[in-house]
Design a protein around this nucleic acid. Structure first.
Lengths: 230, 230
DNA sequence: ATAATAAATGTATTTTTGACATTTGTAAGC
DNA sequence: GCTTACAAATGTCAAAAATACATTTATTAT
């Protein structure tokens, strides 16, 4: 073959899976089910196969454990330290996924020993997975400011307060409720539904839905989703 | 071995090399010197070796052609489409480098058939290299707004006008000279040197140098390099 | 009818942006 | 040596955005 004098490598995909629940940002981890380090907490991972792209491998791995398809998934970075996996040289491509945590299959999670962790209770992870998680968190923070990816973590209908709680969890600081509301509604990307969520107040809070069409129509005319000042 | 039933892959590194010269942002390309597609314009690339990380491979490849070490280099993304290289399955990790184009070794470039191109004269490139270039350009635009990476493209001493020309080249739009100057000087990251560049005006323009120490001192106390509004 | 309370709107101050006008410092031409 | 030319540097001011609170609103439970 053309490149037969070149080295070949095992290629893995490791997924950082974010969820949002009870006003907290969470991470889905599972107990590794093969050697080495079997039984230790780990990101969801697997090896790339010859007949698939990295994106396809990441989707496959995610579907295997959560049962979910068509999830927001984005490549993070390649991790290639020589001894990151002590068993053999493996280059890993990190991914991160955003899922609406109400939708995943609970049985599937149980079957794979998977569990949601808040950020202050993340256990020690195998290999360089803690680093991958940190990189994913950094990326989420950055990306959430300039692209409407937060909605991936919420149910399709949500109150402005829920949306604010999500951003407060991502940025890890409090946001002024009045100013947040004004900023978001001013973007004209949300449709207000004629429904109120009466669970958290007497007055009730209107439910909103993210309108992807409006977003795309806006962006094509130079509009920028920008949450820098919230 | 532990993972012996898994597939292995060729791993390549391809570098998008940015330079800045004559107020223009440029790209360094070379004529590929091995089959397939030998003689066609291409990014600088090479295969990963077992004893090196991806960052090391990228540095090695860059040094081989430009003669430069210690260059600003950052990983972009992995490219894994099944037939991106028609000769064999190769997963490529894209990198981008920023170099002060006055420093590179001209002989080295000639030896490798390398050439600088402005963005409107980039030729057809092999494989998916055009896509890698586009991704790199997008990344540079984004990154330049929130991190002081622009300085990597300039000589160590520069005038505010030069700095503005650089940002105008990156953002591809004109910036108000007065406002740009104020914004940048207000950041307090530049040291004004007691030297004037007399080449472009009667009055002469003071030279400045980026002060990395000041930047790091600032950042640790919550300061953010932010060129969103220029 | 009233109290309680999160949701929603309002308001005032400060900061930042954006566009343009003015002054400054120097070399070259007379 | 005086004037001219001109980018560099500084100044000005209105509009927009961010920030910090204050107030009103809609509803249910008592």
């Amino acid at each position: 073959m053309t490149y037969s004098n070149k080295d070949k490598f095992y290629l893995a995909v490791d997924c950082v899976i974010f969820g949002f629940d009870n006003d907290q940002l969470k991470l889905l981890l599972y107990k590794r089910d093969f050697e080495p380090e079997i039984g230790k907490w780990s990101l969801m991972g697997g090896f790339l196969k010859t007949n698939e792209t990295l994106d396809e491998a990441a989707s496959r791995i995610l579907a295997r454990i959560t049962g979910l398809r068509d999830i927001y998934l984005e490549q993070l970075s390649a991790f290639s330290e020589l001894n990151r996996d002590p068993a053999d040289r493996v280059i890993s491509i990190g991914y991160y996924a955003l899922i609406n945590s109400k939708e995943y299959s609970a049985e599937m999670l149980k079957q794979y020993g998977a569990k949601w962790f808040t950020f202050d209770e993340i256990p020690k992870l195998i290999f360089d997975h803690t680093e991958i998680v940190n990189r994913a968190m950094k990326r989420l923070k950055r990306k959430a400011k300039t692209q409407p990816i937060g909605f991936e973590l919420l149910p399709s209908q949500f109150t402005i307060t829920q949306l604010r709680n999500l951003y407060e969890a991502i940025y890890q600081r409090e946001l002024d409720p009045a100013n947040f509301r004004r900023k978001f509604i001013g973007m004209k990307l949300l449709d207000r539904l004629p429904i109120k969520d009466m669970n958290h107040s007497r007055k009730g809070a209107f439910l909103y839905a993210f309108n992807k069409n409006k977003y795309e129509a806006h962006t094509s005319s130079g509009f920028a989703f920008d949450l820098n000042g919230i």
